[in-house]
């Protein structure tokens, strides 16, 4: 079942066309990998879903969350979707957490806002979430600040924050690019596990086709604001039809065709 359907999404900023008609389909319990070279518009696609495009961006097309079109939604309603039904994890956990607010604060405030939990309930749920993303000693971690955690831990916290209100859709924009290779695998497995257990629809943005082949169910490849190829992982990675995808695959180190 399609949870989030993006069709013919066009975005332009200051007269420059950045997305030129993107179609994507996210399903519950599936990880949809989105690859493509730098500047192809992957991040912009993710931001467009949440209405967080930079100042002055113009959009057209349709982003359907169930029956509702997120692009046509009034700001107030969109704010209940953000974080509540659609959540996002950003690339760099060093900068996407507020350095001066405790982990607990950043984990609970939107729960209290969206779900109407009281302080105690929110805290209990936060502890549960920290356990879920395998932060050791949640009791101690919850009152600490981002700078007291390593990069991998921070990204887990960011994921916990994204999951807090039990969203249906999770957009992860290069969640592992800023991390050590050893830590990457852990975060990816975590995402995969959460997707399977909670039935999330995940849009996993990445440069890295290796990452893609490890966790994605479907794969789309973008180039210059267009999706040039999409399909099940096996098909796209083993038998690419678009020359650009083939070039991408060939540039992978250690991969012999």
């Amino acid at each position: 079942m399609s949870l989030l359907a993006i069709s013919d999404l066009k975005v332009s900023i200051g007269g420059k066309e950045i997305l030129r008609g993107v179609d994507l389909d996210l399903r519950a319990g599936r990880v949809h990998g989105l690859a493509g070279e730098s500047g192809s518009g992957k991040t912009m696609t993710g931001l467009a879903v949440l209405g967080l495009l930079p100042h002055g961006a113009r959009t057209s097309g349709r982003i359907a969350l169930g029956e509702r079109d997120l692009l046509a939604m009034p700001a107030k309603e969109l704010n209940t979707v953000r974080g509540g039904e659609v959540a996002m994890v950003f690339q760099d956990p060093a900068t996407s957490l507020h350095p001066m607010l405790s982990v607990g604060r950043q984990l609970t405030e939107h729960m209290r806002h969206h779900l109407g939990l009281d302080k105690k309930q929110a805290r209990a749920r936060a502890l549960e979430l920290l356990g879920q993303v395998r932060i050791p000693g949640p009791e101690g971690a919850i009152d600490r600040y981002p700078h007291q955690f390593s990069g991998g831990m921070r990204q887990r916290i960011a994921i916990a924050i994204a999951l807090a209100c039990s969203p249906k859709v999770l957009i992860a924009d290069e969640p592992t690019t800023a991390l050590d290779v050893t830590v990457q695998a852990g975060v990816l497995r975590l995402l995969r596990g959460l997707c399977d257990d909670l039935g999330l629809a995940v849009l996993l943005v990445t440069h890295d086709l290796g990452v893609m082949s490890a966790v994605a169910d479907e794969v789309s490849v973008m180039k210059e604001g267009l999706v040039v190829e999409t399909g099940p992982r096996g098909q796209v990675l083993r038998d690419p039809t678009h020359p650009y995808t083939r070039a991408l695959l060939e540039s992978l180190p250690g991969e012999t065709s």
Binding site: R82, G83, M88, F90
Partner: peptide, 17 residues
Amino acid sequence: GQDYVRAARAKGLPGRV
């Protein structure tokens, strides 16, 4: 312009907060 402000908006917090 910081990432964490965008992240906060992605959480659906009200503008005032």
